[in-house]
Amino acid sequence: MVEYKTEEQKKKFYRTGDWNKLRIEALDRDNHECQQCKREGKVHVDSIKVQGERKSVELNVHHKYEIEHYPKLALVLDNLETLCLNCHNKMHDRVFGEQKKKRWDDERWE
């Protein structure tokens, strides 16, 4: 059975033609819209490619059940959903630009 435990194994998987094909299928199925934003009544669609410029990444295809723990679901369309970068980062507890809450809410005495 294939495993996706290490970063190198995951990177190798995400470079395969099978993944890329399924990723496009998931994006098309989800109409290139963030499904979490949609559930919240918002709209976040993919960026548009401008000739001569690099396309900005707006959407990711997310595994609902992570491949590290559920390798059999790595290439199952029903295990995928389209998310914007912000929602995808929230799903993985990666929050940037916000200060983490202080552990103690004490005043500082000088």
Rank of each mutant, 00 (worst) to 15 (best):
N31A: 12
E40N: 05
G41I: 03
L77F: 14
E25L: 11
Q99K: 13
E7H: 14
T82C: 00
K72R: 11
N31Q: 12
L77N: 06
E110H: 05
Y65C: 02
V2T: 09
L83P: 00
E8F: 11
D46Y: 00
E3C: 03
N89T: 00
D93Q: 14
D18H: 01
E53A: 00
E107K: 07
N79C: 09
H32N: 09
I24V: 01
K49N: 09
E110D: 10
C84M: 00
K10N: 12
R103L: 10
L22E: 03
E66N: 02
G17P: 10
H69I: 06
K102I: 05
V61R: 08
K21G: 05
Q99H: 03
K42Y: 15
Y65N: 13
G97I: 09
K102Q: 08
Q51E: 11
D78C: 07
N60F: 10
V45M: 11
W109F: 14
V50W: 00
K55V: 10
L77K: 15
D30T: 12
V45C: 02
W19I: 03
E110I: 03
G41E: 02
W104N: 06
V61H: 00
N31V: 00
H32S: 07
R94P: 09
Y70A: 05
E81K: 11
L80E: 09
W104R: 11
Q51P: 02
K5N: 15
G41P: 01
Q99I: 02
G17W: 01
G52I: 05
S47C: 14
S56V: 08
W104Q: 05
V45G: 06
E58C: 03
E68C: 11
R54E: 12
K38M: 09
E68G: 10
L22P: 08
K21S: 10
L27E: 02
H69W: 09
E25M: 13
D93S: 15
D105P: 08
R23E: 04
N31G: 06
C37N: 01
L59N: 04
T82N: 08
W19N: 07
K10L: 14
E7P: 06
A26R: 04
C34H: 13
T82P: 02
T6I: 02
A26W: 02
E25P: 04
E68Y: 01
R94D: 14
Y70F: 13
R94N: 15
E58Y: 03
D105Q: 12
D78N: 14
Q36E: 01
F13D: 09
M1A: 10
E98P: 01
N79W: 13
N31M: 06
L77G: 14
R15D: 09
W109H: 01
L83M: 00
E110V: 10
H63N: 12
Q36Y: 09
R54D: 03
W109C: 02
L73V: 00
